[in-house]
Design a protein around this nucleic acid. Sequence first.
DNA 1: GGGCGTATAGTCCACATGGACTATTTGAGA
DNA 2: TCTCAAATAGTCCATGTGGACTATACGCCC
Lengths: 210, 210
Amino acid sequence: MRVPNDTTDRLTPMGVMVLALLSEGDMHPYEMVRLMRARRDERLLSITNGTLYHTVGRLQRSGLLDEVGIDREGNRPERTTYTLTDAGKDALLRWLRRELSSIDRPTEFRIALAEAHNLERRDVIENLRVRRDALDEAHALHRDGLTRARHKNVPEQVLVEFERQEVLLEAELRWLDSLLDRLDSEAFPWGPDAFEYSDRYRAQRKAAQQ
Amino acid sequence: MRVPNDTTDRLTPMGVMVLALLSEGDMHPYEMVRLMRARRDERLLSITNGTLYHTVGRLQRSGLLDEVGIDREGNRPERTTYTLTDAGKDALLRWLRRELSSIDRPTEFRIALAEAHNLERRDVIENLRVRRDALDEAHALHRDGLTRARHKNVPEQVLVEFERQEVLLEAELRWLDSLLDRLDSEAFPWGPDAFEYSDRYRAQRKAAQQ
DNA sequence: GGGCGTATAGTCCACATGGACTATTTGAGA
DNA sequence: TCTCAAATAGTCCATGTGGACTATACGCCC
């Protein structure tokens, strides 16, 4: 019987981003903000100081990350640098697997997809296949619900949002199938290495550190 | 110069649902829960007692709704019935117009679309046109960003989420165009009346009242 | 060289959320 | 007829969020 590990299983979007950033190297919170802004992560979540610092504190208290030193550059305010613990790395990977395969948290899925490069290729494929099947089933149910509603003469205007959702479900299914195809071929590069050693990545981190 | 009216402009998703439900008739919070469940509104927001009762209290304090009486049926706990004020109705309509036309809050948009039947047909068309144009522009920007990233040799694996977003943007654009076409023809029924007087609607409300 | 805006690196607090809890009542089954 | 589960109608509280605020330092224009 699997006992749910609350600290580890309940990561907020910001929590995931923090862990993911630290898995690229030790950092102080302000560098995280800069990196996220440089990468346009506002597309995925709202980046606010309050939430960030609160989240870092929380993750530290639950042992997913640790202080590694307090810098002071010139007369600037002091900056606390953090590092990822093994528990933190583990929590990140488990969260990514869970959210990649699940279809009921759209916001979380986008984040998981954006951070999927932290997982091995096989791992990603496996979890996305689960997602594809779940999506397929949800789509069938949705479609049936819609046709039944029409038979019952539910006015079309209250079904508009359902119709949109169906269109989007179909588009996502097609996209996911094509992604899985590409992932299956080795021509599509994958893995932490391809990411970490790109020129662009190094330049971005340097800029964020100033 | 337009002064933002904070109480009115800052509606939470649950706040909007409450106002929308009350615009169908006076209700006590528990009936709202039942109606939302019957209509599968969990698709749009999470329905929790805590949030609902808190929200109703908040809306009352800001004058968007009012108590109209405390019922007691048999020995059941007493139920407070609420009614929508003019300010509440106004706030709802203004929120719907704003969210129908804006592209940067996806969750809110789905709710606005599901409750769009509270607006006149012309109003809906007008705001959705604004949305279509914004979506078009966002799509162009997104597309350009993606091609530029590829030219800069950003590793494909960090672009996967961007690609998905582009596919979904395109699907949504196509859907929106087709919806606008249909709305333009009078063959597509629209308006509060077509909704309120449907058999299904009346049956649902009766069931929720028990 | 005085002033002003922006970058740096955070803190603080009001408010929203959602899960757990409560207390009564009705219905269905043994 | 007794019991036990589910429905009824909520309350309460721990946690999370995000906007406002702070205080110093650097750059730059005149």
